[in-house]
Computed example of a mutant assay.
Amino acid sequence: MGLFDSATFQQLENGLKGAALRQKTIANNIANVDTPNYKAKRANFKHTLTNALQEQTIQANRTNPRHFEFSGQSSKPFFSTHSQTMYHHNGNNVDIDKEMSQSAKNQIYYNALTDRISSKFNSLKTAVRGR
């Protein structure tokens, strides 16, 4: 077992990865604000974190007996595309104000995670020094 194998470090690392993925998705939406027929996308991964914390596994809900049975752990995000709205005459639905707001919210989340990791490293440094 390594020094950084604790559940806290792993959860913080996964949070940072999720924030980075969300930021890439937001940046992609902003970059395509004028692209005809482009539909805004969202990175969704909090559902997986919530399920993993509550149940430790993810179970499939079968609505038909012909569906495959499966269960297990998954931490993969999924991307959703919002195609019901249209904000521009060219079929594009990227709302730049909403994207900038989401970007700022994600930046605050990312900064909170980096502060938490920094404090964990400072605690380790203090423990090693003995002061």
Rank of each mutant, 00 (worst) to 15 (best):
A20D: 06
L21T: 00
L21Y: 01
L21D: 00
R22W: 01
R22V: 00
R22Q: 03
Q23E: 07
K24E: 10
K24A: 08
K24S: 06
I26K: 00
A27I: 12
A27G: 14
N28T: 06
N29P: 14
N29F: 09
N29G: 14
N29Y: 11
I30K: 07
A31K: 12
A31E: 14
N32I: 03
V33L: 12
V33C: 12
D34Q: 15
T35I: 09
N37L: 10
N37I: 05
Y38S: 04
Y38L: 03
K39S: 11
K39A: 07
K39Q: 14
A40Q: 05
K41S: 07
R42I: 05
A43N: 04
N44M: 01
F45R: 00
K46F: 08
K46L: 07
H47A: 13
T48F: 10
T48Y: 05
T48A: 15
T48Q: 13
L49D: 01
L49W: 00
L49Q: 01
T50C: 02
T50Y: 07
N51Q: 09
L53N: 05
L53A: 04
L53Y: 03
Q54D: 07
Q56I: 02
Q56Y: 02
T57E: 14
T57I: 13
I58Y: 01
Q59F: 14
A60W: 13
R62M: 15
R62V: 10
T63V: 03
T63L: 02
T63P: 00
N64E: 07
N64F: 03
P65V: 10
P65D: 07
R66Y: 06
H67S: 13
E69P: 02
E69N: 14
S71P: 02
S71C: 08
S71Y: 08
G72Q: 12
G72N: 12
P77Q: 03
F79N: 07
F79I: 14
H82K: 15
S83V: 11
Q84E: 15
Q84M: 12
T85I: 13
M86F: 00
M86G: 01
M86H: 02
M86K: 04
Y87I: 11
N90G: 06
N90K: 05
G91C: 11
G91L: 09
N92W: 00
N93M: 11
N93K: 08
V94H: 05
D95P: 01
D97H: 06
D97M: 08
K98L: 13
M100S: 04
M100C: 05
M100D: 06
S101C: 06
S101I: 05
Q102L: 11
Q102H: 10
Q102W: 02
S103K: 08
S103R: 05
S103Q: 13
S103F: 11
S103I: 06
A104H: 10
K105S: 03
N106D: 12
Q107W: 02
Q107N: 14
Q107A: 14
Q107I: 04
I108F: 08
I108L: 12
I108S: 04
Y110M: 01
N111C: 04
N111D: 14
A112C: 11
A112E: 08
A112F: 09
A112Y: 08
L113A: 00
T114S: 09
D115C: 08
D115H: 14
S118A: 13
S118M: 10
S119H: 12
K120M: 11
F121Y: 12
L124Q: 07
K125T: 05
T126Y: 09
T126A: 10
V128M: 13
V128T: 15
V128L: 13
R129C: 06
R129A: 12
